[in-house]
């Protein structure tokens, strides 16, 4: 259980938010030109990091906006919160 600081609404319990998976995965511009291996890499393969992870969250029971979080998955400590389109500062 942890608290997330929404960049738009401030600190709220994490149960107000929905998890959106690994951040900064860029959808290939021309999927039809990819090999099956490349498409599988984008679609299914995940770093599934134990440690510092960059991830997306949505404030689904609040402002309903997306943003990014950097969190340590080994202890659920949140290091920073930053908006979509921004780069992590760590």
């Amino acid at each position: 259980m942890f608290i997330i600081k929404c960049p738009y609404c401030g600190e709220r319990d994490h149960s107000e938010f929905s998890y959106g998976g690994e951040a900064h995965l860029v959808r290939p511009k021309q999927p039809t030109e990819l090999s099956d291996d490349q498409w599988a890499e984008y679609l299914f393969m995940r770093k599934n990091i134990k440690g510092l992870q960059y991830e997306r969250w949505n404030h689904s029971h609040g402002c309903r906006r997306w943003f990014n979080v950097s969190r340590d998955t080994s202890n659920d400590m949140i290091y920073s919160v930053y908006k979509i389109g921004e780069k992590p500062n760590k």
Partner: peptide
């Protein structure tokens, strides 16, 4: 749950979430 951690040591990625 730690399969991906071991896979990363071998330079592989798995389609898993823990």
């Amino acid at each position: 749950g730690h399969s991906s951690v071991i896979a990363n040591m071998a330079g592989l990625k798995l389609p898993l979430e823990s």
